[in-house]
Design a protein around this nucleic acid. Structure first.
Lengths: 216, 216
DNA sequence: GGTTTTTCGTTGCATTTGCAATGTATAATC
DNA sequence: GATTATACATTGCAAATGCAACGAAAAACC
């Protein structure tokens, strides 16, 4: 199993070999393979597991009455899905499917939901890590909501860039998005995004090349 | 202190008198008063506390460079704010202010972040409740993102209504929003929302009166 | 190195939505 | 009951954006 992928996830980041083994057991981790197109979970079923993508790509989506697929998340290696629904043992409103041949670490929260009477230090630490994962997710969802709430593409772009610009790298931002993915994240049309980026450059607000942006 | 308000929050819901006392101590709860306009927290400071609004109204917001106030949340009695930032001990990007004279239960997560070596059953239960609160928040943020991602007002309205329509009350939805609040939640202009609601009624998709909707 | 595929930018056009001004109904206050 | 305030609806107009078709550049493949 790929250690460098596991290290990207708060649940397992920086654990020693022995602790990692313990952690995997704690979450009942099982490595599973899914062929492209296979469905991991169906809407209406209780969400009993959550997952960490090791390779490939997993899609969380809903089909509304018109048959339009609404993509909730495209999950790539190193990131997790369905933790909240799993922890709350909710009936799931979403479907989950492999969009590429994928390997997934399938886990559950049984030992969090029914903790042992006297949990070990490690158990407590893992519970804390799970909570931290949820908290971190809430923050990133907040960032997204902030962007989606802006009315103009220009405002969305500026907000996105300022979210990704650190104190050090003054005004220099490299986004982890293709243009298409960036447009989807902002909730706008790809052509319209390209147009607006050009306009912003023309107006002297930004410079950019590919996914590297410079705020002026 | 108002029990019925506390009961609205997962942290304290359904606790016996003694357990409640314990829970309040566990989170270091302190009841504080804030006059309208007072600022509870400033951007850039570490978020050391989270809060439960007992009365009044609290606003979480950011001021972007142009001086526009971007409202992240309007927090009303029975609901909490800043839990994620507090748990992760992050430097806060947001300001928090009382928009009305308010009473707030100010708490912290110290005993979650550094759990005792052998926590009691109650400690474990409270930690679980905190996690459940974060998970629940993630789900509701997900609902919001789903709505904000739709391009048209009509789609947003339909999505909102279907999120609030239960299996029983076939097509009948009473929203907990004024029209103005509904528009803000959908991220659209209030007039445009009214226009589109009228159009949808004209097209025979819905009927409505005030905040009561009937999906046809 | 050439071909194919993918990604991104450009542009014309139709539509939607924001905006602002104003109208109307309902509730609150005196 | 009259007055004021608040919430919601209506509408004309301008601007922004979605959409679609196409072109160019870059990347991937053989």
């Amino acid at each position: 199993m790929n250690r460098s992928i596991l290290n990207k996830c708060v649940l397992f980041e920086g654990l020693s070999e022995g602790s990692l083994e313990y952690a995997l057991d704690f979450f009942n981790a099982q490595e599973k393979q899914y062929k492209k197109g296979w469905q991991l979970h169906h809407e209406g079923d209780v969400m009993r597991n959550f997952g960490l993508v090791l390779s490939g790509q997993i899609q969380v989506f809903m089909d509304d009455f018109d048959g339009n697929r609404m993509i909730m998340a495209n999950v790539t290696p190193g990131t997790t899905f369905a933790e909240s629904l799993c922890y709350l043992k909710r009936i799931s409103p979403v479907n989950i499917e492999a969009v590429l041949d994928s390997t997934v670490l399938v886990m559950n929260t049984d030992r969090l939901n029914s903790p042992s009477a006297s949990p070990s230090q490690m158990d407590l630490q893992l519970a804390g890590r799970f909570t931290a994962m949820l908290a971190g997710r809430a923050l990133s969802m907040n960032d997204r909501i902030q962007i989606l709430s802006k009315q103009s593409i220009r405002e969305k772009v500026i907000t996105l860039l300022s979210q990704h610009s650190s104190r050090e790298s003054k005004g220099l931002v490299r986004l982890p998005f293709s243009r298409e993915a960036m447009a989807r994240y902002l909730g706008v049309n790809q052509s319209a995004l390209s147009r607006e980026l050009s306009n912003m450059a023309k107006d002297g607000i930004i410079e950019f090349k590919g996914s590297s942006f410079h705020i002026l």
